[in-house]
Design a protein around this nucleic acid. Structure first.
Lengths: 123, 123
DNA sequence: GGCTTTGTCAACCTGTTGGTTGAGAAAGGT
DNA sequence: ACCTTTCTCAACCAACAGGTTGACAAAGCC
């Protein structure tokens, strides 16, 4: 058992690690497009773009419908939610820890240097 | 010119594509740890974990201080912010588009089947 | 000074990624 | 029927990723 959401996150993060694929996502956010349309601006073969789209599809970031011989690619927002949920969880924790550490350091500084006036021992 | 934030996102997403590294992040969210401590639970050499930490470090997800011969690893929340910003932007757009399409389809359905009663032509 | 602890660096191996080209499948157009 | 358009599949290749082991650097401890 490898936990399904682990596998989904593996694929999703890996998919978005490639700048070409992030660019595809950005463009698809503006509307569906065919593989040919997607490939047009890049200096790269159609097959290469087709592969990229396949990676996005297997990551669940994108779906394809069938319209005659065209196969319009459609951005699917769902997995994005899973990703941000993961990231934000640990970001919150890290920031929380940072905040507390900061407070602790502030207290320590106060103890060490109570008022900055009169450092002489009263005893 | 390759755009600096593109390169940072490449590294950040790639770093989190590996489940071991995501696990490291999860554990570091609970507190700083040394490489040795981090490596302990895994069935993997210390060197391998050291490499993973290095990847996280180069992705800017983690920093290291120097405490004698130990080098405690510390989770840094900043890049996470960059990632969620990227993801959420396109998620919002995709959902917005979906919402509008949905509305459009609803209107079309209404036009085609006004009340569902009386489909006969009035002419 | 020598030993221990903690971690990195270098070389190596294997599987995966991201690109290429060439062939061909699938659906329509004429 | 044949041609065109759109796209995928297969084979190949160079580069990279993630693991291994072995050597060694750096900072205490005795």
């Amino acid at each position: 058992m490898v936990d399904d959401s682990t596998e989904r996150l593996n694929r999703a993060f890996a998919a978005l690690a490639d700048p070409t694929r992030r660019d595809l996502v950005a463009r698809l956010a503006g509307g569906d497009a065919t593989v040919g349309e997607l490939a047009e601006p890049y200096d790269m073969s159609l097959q290469a773009v087709s592969k990229h789209v396949k990676v996005l599809e297997e990551a669940g970031l994108v779906t394809r419908s069938k319209d005659a011989q065209r196969r319009p690619v459609h951005l699917d927002a769902e997995v994005f939610g899973l990703m941000t949920k993961w990231i934000e969880r640990y970001r919150r924790e890290a920031e929380e820890r940072y905040r507390r550490l900061d407070a602790l350091l502030a207290r320590m500084a106060d103890d060490e240097e109570p008022t900055h006036t009169d450092t002489r021992d009263a005893s």
